[in-house]
């Protein structure tokens, strides 16, 4: 087994020009995804987690652009790839699952045809062989009697089934990496739980790496071995899921966990992080979380660096919390 990371993001910066100057959606992000690992990326809306996921797929559209950094996938710097270079990897070695399955499927094409297209655009394969692979993929995500389903159109599926079809398409070419952007947010808890189980089993059985972008810490706890917490375009904490959820070292992570209704006594006031997310085009100088932070001090006027507090745990804070206290 190889030990180099499958995906390695180094100093990545993604900017969108606006009237008020450049909006830095992803700001100097370093992130590694090991082979077979499930990494959760957590953040609130506007934290840059989706843009980070898209940049690993080469899907940042103009006027947005990567202004610094590298995305190294399996030893190759893919930021330099041309569109045709990307086409060889996208959907083949890296697959993506989006939040809303209704918009990621073609409404006027049968499911089977959409799946065959995904296969044949990367491999020279006969229709019969393709059908066999498709059947297997559908069974793997829990769609029984796939043959009847292949001729159906997306609107004939329920929301949960549609998302399974999308996941099955992502699996077709046996990618090394799947980037899933809030794939269960639009679904009911019962369906969400089924998909979490399926994906957990899949990544274990096939050693597919998984990047799971979500705002829900409960979901991360169920699926991810490691978690990166994003705030205002930066990673503020990165480490093993269990460690971070039990004893967070960044005040923002601590605040997020404490805000969850499940972590408070019923009827009591919830812990809430004061204020709102800063505008990305008007970030405060120094630590972007300082204006909302209970522990903020004068040292927070300087931009904090990501400090390694143990071999597998890093935090971007000048005075990290003493985890566990």
């Amino acid at each position: 087994m190889r030990n180099d990371p499958l995906l390695s993001i180094k100093g990545l910066r993604v900017e969108f020009p606006t009237q008020d100057g450049p909006l830095v959606a992803v700001n100097n992000v370093d992130l590694d995804v090991a082979r077979g690992e499930v990494l959760g990326i957590v953040g609130e809306s506007g934290s840059g987690k989706t843009v980070l996921g898209l940049s690993a797929m080469g899907l940042i559209d103009r006027p947005g652009r990567l202004t610094a950094g590298q995305v190294v996938f399996d030893g190759q710097d893919v930021t330099k790839y041309s569109e045709s270079g990307w086409r060889n990897i996208r959907g083949n070695r890296i697959a993506m699952i989006f939040q809303d399955p209704t918009t990621s499927l073609n409404p006027v094409q049968q499911i089977g045809a959409q799946m065959i297209e995904a296969l044949q655009s990367h491999r020279d394969i006969s229709r019969d062989n393709a059908r066999q692979i498709i059947r297997n993929a559908m069974v793997r995500v829990g769609i029984n009697s796939p043959d009847e389903r292949l001729n159906a159109y997306p609107h004939q599926f329920s929301g949960g089934m549609r998302q399974r079809v999308v996941i099955a398409i992502a699996l077709l070419n046996e990618p090394d990496l799947i980037i899933a952007d809030e794939p269960t947010t639009a679904l009911d808890v019962t369906i969400q739980a089924q998909i979490l189980r399926d994906m957990r089993r899949l990544s274990r059985d096939t050693r597919t790496s998984l990047v799971w972008v979500t705002h829900d810490l409960g979901v991360v706890a169920q699926i991810a071995q490691r978690v990166a917490v994003m705030y205002a375009g930066r990673i503020v904490e990165n480490g093993p899921t269990e460690k971070i959820l039990k004893s967070p070292c960044h005040p923002y992570t601590e605040g997020l966990i404490a805000s969850m209704p499940a972590n408070a006594l019923p009827g009591e006031r919830l812990h809430s992080i004061p204020g709102g997310l800063p505008q990305l085009s008007k970030l405060p100088a120094g630590c972007s979380f300082a204006p909302r932070c209970n522990y903020a001090a004068s040292a927070c006027n300087m931009s904090p660096k990501l400090i390694q507090i143990s071999s597998d745990h890093a935090v971007r804070c000048v005075s990290p919390l003493d985890g566990g206290s």
Binding site: S158, G160, M161, D188, V189, T190, I191, Q192, A193, Q194, L196, R197, R201, D216, L217, G218, V219, A221, Q222, L245, I257, M260, A262, N263
Partner: peptide, 24 residues
């Protein structure tokens, strides 16, 4: 019971088995 079992929380692990079969 099934609905409560399927809520992802920080402290418990989802069981391997589906708590609810089929769809609504």
């Amino acid at each position: 019971k099934a609905l409560l079992a399927e809520v992802p929380t920080l402290d418990k692990n989802l069981s391997e088995e589906h708590a609810l079969k089929g769809e609504l």
